[in-house]
Computed example of a mutant assay.
Amino acid sequence: MTTRAGKFAGTFIAGGLKSLITPVIAIILALILGAAAIALMGLSPLKAYQSLLQGALGSINGIGETLVKATPLIFTGLSFGLAKKGGLINIGAEGQLYLGGLCSVIVGIALKGWPIFIHLPLAIVAGFIGGGLLGLLSGWLKVRFGASEIITTVMLNYVAQYFVSYMVNGPLIEPPGNFPQSPPVAESAQLPIILAGTRLHLGFIIALLAIVAYYVFLWRTSTGYEVRVVGQNPHAAGYAGMNARRDTLLVMFLAGGLGGLAGVGEILGIQHRLFQNFSPGYGFDGIAVSLLGYNTPIGILLAAILFGILRAGGNMMQMMANVPVAIVYVIQAFVIIFVAAEALMRRWQVKRRAARTAAGAAGLTVEGVSKNG
Rank of each mutant, 00 (worst) to 15 (best):
V154I: 15
A189W: 00
A213W: 06
G241M: 12
V229N: 01
A358G: 13
G259A: 12
I91C: 09
F338P: 02
G146P: 11
N322M: 09
G224T: 04
F163Q: 01
V323M: 06
V159A: 15
T198C: 06
V212M: 10
I89E: 03
P45R: 02
G87I: 06
P115E: 09
N372D: 14
N372Q: 15
A361Y: 13
L31C: 09
G55N: 09
A30E: 00
I32K: 00
R352L: 13
A354L: 15
I21S: 12
R220N: 12
F253I: 08
I206Q: 08
G15E: 11
V154A: 14
T11L: 11
N277I: 07
L31S: 00
G131L: 12
L82N: 00
A262K: 08
I205S: 05
Y49L: 05
F275L: 15
G81K: 08
Q50F: 03
G6F: 10
G86N: 05
Y166G: 08
G265V: 14
T152I: 05
M1C: 03
V107F: 09
G308R: 04
G308W: 07
A321C: 06
A207S: 14
V143Q: 13
L274S: 10
G58M: 06
I267T: 13
N157D: 14
M167V: 11
T365D: 15
G260Q: 11
G313F: 04
T357N: 13
G368R: 15
I38H: 03
Y215P: 04
I91T: 10
P175G: 06
Y166W: 14
A48F: 09
M1E: 08
L292C: 07
G177C: 09
Q190N: 05
G64S: 05
I118M: 12
G146S: 12
F253W: 10
V68H: 03
A123K: 13
T11A: 11
A210I: 07
G177L: 05
G293R: 02
T22W: 04
I300W: 00
W348S: 14
I25A: 10
F253Q: 05
V323K: 01
G131D: 11
A126G: 07
A244P: 01
P176S: 07
A236K: 08
A126C: 11
M320A: 14
A93K: 02
G170P: 01
L364S: 14
V330G: 04
Y49I: 07
V323G: 01
I193Y: 00
M242G: 11
S79K: 02
L344S: 12
G313P: 01
L88T: 04
G87C: 09
